[in-house]
């Protein structure tokens, strides 16, 4: 009955989209994979003490050193002449955009051949929904009780600024797209980074059944742009034929319940600007992908 490399009966929250993303990533990479997971929600996948639900070699790294662990494993494999093994870093937004940013930046700058997947649930969910550098404007967290006052970091652009050979975004609502990108990233002869939107029913305050629907809404409103950038060349993979207003996305989540009108207008303006820049760069919004 069990499929893939992860056991059933893991203690992820009901409706956790990170688990679906992890299963898709592991299934795509296959058994010749070494996984590095820092503390965070995905630490459940690495296991505790002498127990693990993951039937792949996995090491739980320090929170700030996922990419450094992965780079070290790759160096060890190269020293042994083993070139057919994937080295995967699988970290949340806190371990990527904030605490782990320096080691990720170093690994990408050195050109270490690692695949880094960031599941972005837009706050420190595992420790109690504290705001992170990836928390969007206006979102409630326990450390931004009146809504976050600043915008989020753009991780994709930070990675692109390093001249990374492969950077992409993905969503659990479009699993074929995610699987395709994981396979492409694993085949890249250098560092690769995939940023996956990860709706979190516990932290974003929505019913457990709505995770995939909200991920799809993020794409249809233009809030989450599904793109890939191969050697600097940008391609938007899913283009909503008619973008819905961002309020359609915001109203589905309790974390945006207290958002002000000016912040909604600022988010809509951000989204509109992003898409007009994409259109100006030759990525015209014509096909009805979503």
């Amino acid at each position: 009955m069990k499929k893939g490399f992860l056991a059933h009966g893991m203690t992820t929250c009901a409706g956790c989209t990170m688990e679906l993303i992890a299963r898709t990533v592991f299934d795509t990479l296959g058994e010749k994979t070494i996984v590095v997971i820092p503390p965070g929600c995905a630490a459940i996948l690495a296991g505790y003490s002498l127990e693990t639900p993951l039937e792949l070699p996995v090491v739980m790294s320090n929170l700030e050193a996922t990419a450094a662990f992965a780079a070290g494993i790759r160096a060890g494999l190269e020293a042994q002449g083993k070139n057919d093994v994937n080295v995967l870093g699988f970290a949340g937004d806190g371990g990527t955009a904030d605490i782990g940013l320096q080691s990720l930046s170093g690994a990408v700058e050195r050109g270490d051949r690692i695949l880094y997947v960031c599941y972005d649930n837009e706050a420190y969910m595992n420790t109690g929904i504290q705001g992170s550098g990836s928390t969007p404007l206006g979102a409630w967290t326990t450390t931004t009780p009146g809504g976050k006052a600043s915008r989020r970091k753009d991780l994709g652009l930070i990675m692109d600024a390093h001249g990374i050979p492969y950077v992409a975004t993905a969503s659990p609502a479009y699993l074929e797209d995610l699987a395709k990108k994981v396979a492409k990233a694993a085949a890249t002869p250098g560092p690769s980074f995939i940023h996956v939107h990860t709706p979190c029913p516990t932290g974003w305050r929505f019913p457990t059944a709505k995770g995939i629907e909200i991920a799809r809404l993020a794409v249809r409103t233009g809030m989450w742009v599904i793109y890939e950038r191969v050697n600097g060349v940008l391609e938007v993979n899913i283009k909503p034929a008619k973008r819905l207003p961002v309020t359609e996305y915001l109203k589905t989540q309790g974390r945006f319940a207290g958002i002000g009108e000016e912040q909604v207008a600022a988010m809509q303006a951000d989204v509109d600007r992003t898409w007009s820049q994409l259109a100006a760069s030759g990525e015209v919004l014509q096909s009805a992908g979503a």
Binding site: M1, A14, P201, T208, A209, K210, I212, E213
Partner: peptide
């Protein structure tokens, strides 16, 4: 559906 492990999140019903 393996009800030993199904957490009843309802994603299947919603999708």
């Amino acid at each position: 559906i393996d009800l030993t492990y199904c957490k009843g999140c309802g994603v299947c019903a919603n999708e």
